[in-house]
Amino acid sequence: MSESDEELMVRAAWYYYVGGLNQELTASRLGLTRARVNKMLAEARETGLVSISIDHQRVGVMPVETSLHERFGLDFCVSTPAFGFEAMKADDELRKQIAFRAVGVAAANHLKRLLEENDPITVGTGWGRTIEQMTLQLAGVRAPHARFISMMGSLTANNAYNPFEVVHSLARRTGGEGFFLPVPFIADSVEDRKVLVSQRSVVKAMEIARSASVCFISAGELTERSLLRLQGMISRADLDSLHAAGAVGDTNGIFFDDLGRQVAHDLNDRTIALGFEELKQLKVILLVAGAEKAVAARALLRSGIVSGLIIDGDAALTLDALGP
């Protein structure tokens, strides 16, 4: 099998198994006949390319991965194949679900390798739908000596992407231990934050977080459709004042400007999470799902805290087009 044939087979597998496209749409995206796609998918299963997950390493290094890797001085960059959402005219929710799942699979593969190669290991986690998908896609690994720790306080809503639920799910799937910060995501006041972070249980959890071997975070855009707004964690007035302060995105509830600097804002003073200076001491892997996250992702990559990037192909192309 030639290199080009193998790459086509991998792309077909991504579109069909991860993206959820049927064989007809997969064939259309690749410019192939449905019969050939059917044969490729069967061969992908027979050769072991498709098992529990898709082996991204068989794709080879994509040009956009090299571009982003070099531009932002990363240790590594993994991009899934682009799905071409604009050409597909996919509805917004379908597009997001495909992107979340694709990045989740790639991130789970990376985490699985880390767990298999490092014993013991402490893994820090953020929150959000991309992080949630990473936990859902992680399977087939036992790591009883692994520790998972949330890098931020928890939300009030009991969602699967809540930091507490993320840590609990990872510990359950691997047989490891889970730790979380037993405090709210954002304190009511600066004084309340000081009291909360001085509690012995919180001090211990923060110490574990600062000792993490690696941590996975995501970037959030600051719009009315962002998860923070949809969950009611910030108000419309908060959003407006954050924009006025120069904020373009957040990670773990820490709001930053276009150059990746924490902005001067009351919310940053009340958020309970590891700050940028602390994250700079760790190996941080940024997960990005969705082209709408490109501006926030570029800013966070400029901050100097990110060492690795896992991103969906469409977002990678958008990010690359933004320039340095």
Rank of each mutant, 00 (worst) to 15 (best):
E65N: 05
T66F: 04
L68R: 12
L68M: 10
H69K: 09
G73V: 01
L74Y: 10
D75W: 07
C77V: 12
V78C: 02
V78Q: 02
S79M: 07
S79G: 04
T80L: 00
T80I: 00
A82H: 02
F83S: 05
F85Y: 14
F85R: 12
F85E: 13
E86D: 15
A87W: 07
D91Q: 05
L94W: 13
I98T: 13
A99C: 15
F100Q: 12
F100I: 12
R101G: 08
R101A: 11
A102I: 04
G104H: 09
G104L: 11
A106Q: 00
A106D: 00
L111P: 09
L114S: 00
L114Q: 13
N118Q: 00
D119S: 13
D119M: 01
I121L: 08
V123E: 08
V123M: 01
V123D: 09
G126M: 13
W127Q: 11
Q133E: 15
Q133K: 07
M134H: 07
T135R: 08
L136I: 09
L138N: 09
V141M: 05
A146S: 09
R147N: 12
I149S: 11
I149D: 11
M151F: 08
T156C: 01
A157M: 11
N159Q: 11
P163G: 08
F164N: 00
V167R: 00
S169G: 07
L170V: 09
R172V: 13
G175L: 02
G176V: 12
F179M: 13
V183W: 07
P184T: 11
A187S: 10
S189N: 06
E191D: 12
R193I: 05
V195L: 04
V197L: 01
Q199T: 06
R200M: 10
S201H: 11
V202G: 12
E207K: 07
